[in-house]
Amino acid sequence: MEIVLQRSHSEVETRKIGEKLVCSLTLPALVLLQGELGAGKTVFVKGMAQGLGIDPEEVRSPTFALIHEYLQGRVPLYHMDFYRLERWEEVVHLGFEEYLDKEGVVVVEWGDKFLSFLTPPFWVVEIEVIAPEERNITVKRWIQ
């Protein structure tokens, strides 16, 4: 497992870290986001979108709809949210596994919820709130 720890001092920096990560991915890729409410998970995804040539302002919280698909960039971005899901069967029911086979990037907010059901390789990004504007962002790469 490779671990990189970064410090973000603003939303802009959080976006930059997301943008940088997405550019280093090989497809298809799965990125799981971990962090409390308000940590900046959606902000991080906005950065990832930017890196793929998708308008970051199009990226909104998928909590209600569960999946947002952004197909206007160089690579498709599938933005999901496990916040409201309680059981792995519900994730399967969503068609989650079919998304993993697509040549795109799948990013999941609250993705650590079902970690034990997932097989590497994937990335886990942990966003930790240090102060109102400060975040510790740990990027872990899980390899088989």
């Binding site: 959606t42 909104r60 919280s61 209600f64």
Partner: peptide
């Protein structure tokens, strides 16, 4: 215009939960 992140009702639900 529309929300760029959370919907208003979503903010209500999440605040209430916390």
């Amino acid at each position: 215009g529309r929300t760029r992140d959370d919907a208003a009702g979503e903010a209500y639900d999440k605040v209430a939960k916390v």
